[in-house]
Amino acid sequence: MDIRILGAGDEALLVDAVTLTDEGPISHQAATRHLADPDLVNVVAIEDGVVAGFIYGHVLRRFEAVSLFIYSVDVDEAFQRRGLAKAMLARLRDLGATGRWDEMFVFTNASNTPAMALYASAGGHRPNPDDVMFDFD
């Protein structure tokens, strides 16, 4: 398994990775623009020569801290339960430890049992069990 932070020149990997999400597909040009933005962070897990997992997030700069908001965590069904998502989260934690951000966070639903187990096993903690999120159109 190869865990890789994507950068310029990795457009083909990003195009492949987006197919794992509920978004996309994206064009090569969109991938180039996405990878050029330093506040968009992308990590993939490559197994057997294919993109098997993908996490992307946004760097959020606040007055008191810089955070990585993990927007999407996806692993191809054929590669699930092999530790790919946990390894990608660990790679992001390592990148944050270099000073890129102070903390990482992700939203999920309490009813999403696999996600709850993944985030807890990867070292995440739930600081406020009553957090509520509002969407605005």
Rank of each mutant, 00 (worst) to 15 (best):
K86E: 12
H58D: 05
F79M: 01
G96F: 02
H58F: 13
F69R: 11
N112F: 01
M104P: 08
N42A: 12
V75N: 01
R81Y: 00
F79S: 05
G49H: 07
L35E: 07
W101K: 09
E77G: 06
R61P: 04
G49K: 05
F105V: 06
R100I: 10
M104E: 02
D94T: 13
A45M: 04
L84M: 07
V41P: 01
G53A: 11
S72L: 08
L60S: 11
L84W: 10
L89M: 12
G83P: 08
A52G: 14
L89V: 03
N42L: 00
T108S: 09
F54K: 00
F79A: 07
V66H: 05
S67D: 15
V43K: 01
G49Y: 06
M88E: 14
A110T: 09
V73T: 08
A36E: 10
H34M: 12
A36S: 13
A85G: 13
T98P: 07
V44A: 08
G99Q: 01
A87C: 02
D94K: 12
G83W: 11
L68E: 12
V59M: 07
I55Y: 02
Y56E: 09
P38M: 02
N112K: 03
A36F: 04
V73S: 00
V75K: 02
R82K: 15
F79H: 13
P38V: 02
R100G: 03
S67R: 14
I46W: 00
D39M: 11
E64Q: 05
V73D: 09
G99F: 01
L92A: 09
D39I: 09
V51P: 09
S111K: 11
D39L: 11
R61F: 07
A90S: 14
A36M: 05
G99Y: 02
N109Y: 11
Y71D: 15
L60E: 15
D76L: 01
A31M: 04
A90K: 15
D102E: 12
G49W: 08
R62D: 02
D76I: 00
A52H: 08
T108G: 00
I55K: 05
E64G: 04
K86Q: 14
S72F: 01
F105H: 06
V59F: 01
D102G: 08
P38A: 06
Y71E: 15
A78F: 05
A36K: 05
A45T: 02
A85I: 07
V59G: 09
N112Q: 06
R93E: 15
D39H: 14
P38E: 13
R100S: 04
A85T: 03
N42V: 04
R81L: 01
D74N: 15
V59R: 11
R61H: 14
L92Y: 08
V75D: 02
S72Y: 02
D76R: 04
D74F: 01
T98E: 15
G53W: 00
F107E: 14
E47P: 01
L60K: 06
A97Q: 14
F63N: 09
A36V: 03
V106R: 02
D37T: 12
